[in-house]
Computed example of a mutant assay.
Amino acid sequence: MESLQLATAIAKVLDKKKASDVKVLKVRDLTVLTDYFVIATGTSSTHVKSLAEEVEFQLGEQGVKPLRTEGYDSKNWILLDFGTVIVHVFYPEARSFYDLEHLWADAEPVDVKFEEDETDAQ
């Protein structure tokens, strides 16, 4: 799966599972770590965990597994590393504290059309 396609698919899974403030940032030109960050917020530690698990499950169904995962124990910030896409699922206070959007302010935001966006357009 191509990296933009993967990032978009992940963002849509997170949105469908009711994550808030889902963002995709293109960081390819800023770092050698990855091509895209997908950042989302859960409403509780349980929601954060279920969001990350849903991403793993949905992509696993397509044969795509993360290379590494971090943060399942704390459930404040779960990171899923898919190589070309790194997913950050935050508890609200952790997202505010780490403020990745500010840290990576030079990243190019990617406009993802979510299901409600598509139905609103009709």
Results as ranks from 00 to 15, higher is better:
83 G>A: 09
84 T>R: 14
54 E>N: 06
44 S>W: 02
16 K>T: 11
62 Q>V: 09
23 K>E: 09
63 G>P: 00
24 V>F: 03
12 K>W: 09
18 K>G: 00
43 T>R: 07
77 W>A: 03
89 V>Y: 08
66 P>V: 05
77 W>Q: 04
6 L>K: 15
52 A>C: 13
24 V>W: 02
9 A>G: 07
80 L>Q: 10
56 E>W: 09
64 V>P: 02
20 S>V: 02
19 A>E: 05
71 G>A: 15
89 V>F: 07
8 T>I: 15
93 E>I: 14
113 K>S: 14
97 F>D: 04
21 D>S: 08
32 V>F: 05
91 Y>R: 14
39 I>K: 05
27 V>H: 00
10 I>H: 00
103 L>P: 00
64 V>L: 15
112 V>C: 02
83 G>L: 10
55 V>H: 05
95 R>G: 05
110 V>E: 10
82 F>S: 10
3 S>L: 06
5 Q>E: 15
73 D>Q: 14
101 E>D: 12
14 L>S: 03
85 V>T: 07
88 H>L: 08
10 I>Q: 01
97 F>S: 05
44 S>K: 03
80 L>Y: 08
38 V>E: 11
7 A>L: 14
64 V>T: 15
119 T>L: 10
82 F>Y: 15
86 I>C: 07
93 E>D: 13
97 F>G: 01
12 K>Y: 10
62 Q>I: 08
37 F>R: 11
9 A>I: 03
36 Y>E: 07
7 A>I: 14
6 L>H: 12
60 G>F: 14
13 V>C: 04
50 S>D: 05
21 D>E: 12
91 Y>E: 13
42 G>V: 01
114 F>T: 00
112 V>W: 01
102 H>Y: 07
14 L>H: 04
35 D>C: 11
86 I>R: 08
83 G>R: 06
21 D>C: 01
87 V>W: 08
90 F>V: 08
101 E>H: 11
69 T>E: 10
49 K>V: 00
6 L>I: 14
38 V>P: 11
31 T>R: 01
74 S>C: 11
64 V>G: 06
109 P>N: 02
68 R>E: 10
72 Y>W: 10
